[in-house]
């Protein structure tokens, strides 16, 4: 099976600062990758490098068999990279429905299907983005990325700052996307145990480098690397 995404020896950062060093990994069609690591190790920089808003110092990023490292963010998005930013960044002046349709591209994911995934959004479809709660904004941010009908979904800390009950709802939706819909995805998460059950593989970043890579199931079975690298002691 040809890889959907191949990142080869990527070094990237902002301005003159190199944040990511020599990052290499690959992702197949329909695969989901968990990106784990402490705060400030470069997880978001990795996502930013894939959507094209960082400065690249070396390396290549191939997507669907084509080099995209030199493309603008809008060109990458048009090729099928969908992004759920950490800050959510929903368009506050647009209604819920407009948030979905403003960036929509043809494909199976329509606004109505997004409403099927997140019924709460359907109820608030005519409300402005600014009127939504944090959880609703997260749902909208995911729905907005889906509406672009991406081949690859990038989720940057999708449960951060949400109430526990909402976290469950969001995680359930993500699980459905990854497991039932078979959408390829990269999920950045600090809380490994939330995400390992629904991803195929996992990488752990430390100081901008990949220091561990394995199947998600292996990490769940043997949490030693998590404890060592993330200081996770929960359960």
């Amino acid at each position: 099976m040809a890889d959907l995404l191949t990142v080869q020896s990527l070094s990237a950062g902002y301005g003159r600062a190199v944040v990511l060093s020599d990052v290499t990994f690959a992702l197949g069609e329909g695969q989901a990758l968990a990106v784990l690591g402490r705060n400030g190790v470069g997880k978001t920089t990795l996502i930013d490098s894939l959507i094209g808003v960082t400065r690249r110092f070396a390396g290549s990023v191939r997507f669907s068999g084509k080099e995209i490292a030199t493309l603008s963010p809008e060109a990458r998005a048009q090729r099928g990279i969908g992004w759920v930013p950490q800050e959510r960044n929903v368009f506050r002046s647009l209604s819920v429905e407009e948030n979905l349709t403003a960036v929509a591209r043809p494909g199976p994911w329509t606004a109505d299907r997004v409403f099927g995934l997140f019924p709460r959004l359907a109820e608030r479809r005519h409300h402005a983005g600014s009127a939504l709660s944090g959880g609703e904004q997260q749902m909208l941010a995911i729905g907005r990325a889906l509406a672009t009908n991406p081949k690859l979904l990038l989720l940057d800390e999708p449960t951060e700052g949400l109430a526990p009950i909402i976290v469950q709802e969001v995680l359930a939706a993500i699980a459905r996307l990854l497991r039932e819909e078979g959408l390829a995805a990269i999920v950045v998460e600090q809380h490994a145990r939330k995400i390992l059950p629904i991803t195929d593989r996992a990488v752990i970043l430390e100081r901008g480098r990949i220091v561990h890579e394995s199947a998600s199931a292996a990490l769940l079975a043997d949490a030693t690397p998590l404890e060592r690298l993330l200081g996770v002691t929960e359960r």
Binding site: E74, A77, P85, F91, R92, A102, V103, R105, A145
Partner: peptide, 10 residues
């Protein structure tokens, strides 16, 4: 509202 975010959505 946010040109950079919009660009990231194509």
């Amino acid at each position: 509202e946010d040109a950079e975010i919009a660009a990231a959505y194509g």
